[in-house]
Amino acid sequence: MKLHRRLVYVLLLVFILVPMLFGLTFKVKPTKPVMTFFDSVAELSPGDYIAVTLSFDPSTKAELVPMLKALTEHVFAKGLSVIFLNPGSINVSDLGFSVISDIASKYGTIENSDWYYLGYVPGEKAVYQKLGEDLYSVYPASMHGVKLNSTKLYKDVRNMEDVKILIDLADGNSTVDLLTYLSTKYDVPMAAGVTAVMASEYYPYLESGQLKGLLGGLRGAAEYETLLNVSGRARRGMAAQTLAHILIMLLVLMGNIEYFMAKRKNG
């Protein structure tokens, strides 16, 4: 029996829809790369500065927005000062800002005092390097035009060497570029949250200690939510992921059984 392509599509939809309709959630067991990521944020003291670069397009928000949400909740709950910026992606500015400002209103943190949204500036690799020299020659003002020299940030941070950790949330090569031009060159500790497709590429940098931690795909975000003890979109998505993965394994198995049967038939 051969499954029609469209039947496979329908099966996939059903396997994802059912757990979502019933609101099933799963607990996930945190893995080491996520725990080290979490710890590198958890060990900071209130008032310490961290920088978060949003280097993804809205098309991959499925995986990266849950990470951004979990991370933002964590840093706001800890009372860290955060610099958000997106020099690696032009289209994410508004999406990122609305996600962060929603969480900020929940924690009562104030823009341009507890956190800063600097937005996009053209020049990508040049920007990464200049951030290591002088933050304000790249961003004299926040995304919404507030001059930074009138803020607390200006007194505390000269360049990225003054932040405790730089975290890149990315769907492309920006993590390697940031490692190359900023982390290595200016000795800025770095961690990353990346899409599942990219995750395995970053293990050499994780193993070498150049990345302090790594969140890979929705599972990475779900593990972070587990460590934070919140039930966000990532953890809710893991039930649908589980069923969809089981379906994929069944499809692979069926495909192979058919293949071997056809092979035996043809001698």
Partner: peptide, 30 residues
Amino acid sequence: YNNLLVPLQATIFSLLAFYISSAAYRAFRA
């Protein structure tokens, strides 16, 4: 941006989920 660009870009990329399931069945052979 919020009502067209973001949801539609996400939808275009979601097509890949269907293709990977179809590929799992038809091309992933030992």
